[in-house]
Amino acid sequence: MIPSEFDYVKAGSVQEAIGLLQQHGDDAKVLAGGHSLIPLLKLRLASPAVLVDISGIGDLRGIKSGGDKVTIGALTTHNDLEQSAELKGSFPILSEAATLIGDPMVRNRGTFGGSLAHADPAGDWPAVALALGAQMHITGSGGERTVAADDFFIDILTSDVQPGELLTSIDLPMPSGKVGMSYQKFSHPASGYAVVGVAAMVTLDGSGNCSSARVAVTGAGAKAVRLTSVEEALVGKSLTEENVAAAAGTAGEGIDYLGDIYASEEYRAHLVKVFAKRAVLAAAGNVK
């Protein structure tokens, strides 16, 4: 399997990468970990004329905790997030989700930013980013802009990153109060991708009731979305199995479900409720 011909340029800095992308316009594609793009190139489902390899831009990789947020560079790999001791305390959901992505070789190459920018309908990070209220930093020729996760995923394989722009880093607001989070995934046994995956973050008030919840699903439809009806049904309740099950039972309204050879639309609709319940209960179970 040999891709169509293309030229390859390795960018040394964000500015250089953006310059190259502007220069080549629609003919250029960013190459990060390559674990979504290269399979598409090999099948000739994508045939860009130029690949701009950003993997050498050191500034874009790494995890920085500072005050009220953690900043994750776009090139931080799934494996970096899986292994990070720093994140295990504040965002245990990151290693929990990372370890469920593909396999170790995929995690060694694939990047957090690449996964978000690619917006695969079954990618794991989009659901996690929605549940954590991530803020995406995007740089283009006109400077930097910041987009909330809620506005970032547009459609199948379409995020708000425009041609000529780079996703550079992602901020995760530091949770305050009594917070628990979890990602629960039903993996496709062969591909490893999510048939359905649900990420949940819950905050409890002084009396132990849920004061806020963010719950998001991937794999169900064309893009990851928040399950707002579940979130609303949880607020003010104590997170007992019964209450969580009732809230999770509302999950999935408005999703245009995908059906494929592995899981029908009905099956996915069912899984969304089951995994919403599991994710919220698991989040409630690890509140600290």
Partner: peptide, 17 residues
């Protein structure tokens, strides 16, 4: 064919679009 291995997953949503 080879498409099925990687493409299958994305075909339904793409076809829908």
């Amino acid at each position: 064919g080879p498409l099925a291995s990687v493409g299958q997953r994305l075909m339904a949503p793409a076809a829908r679009m």
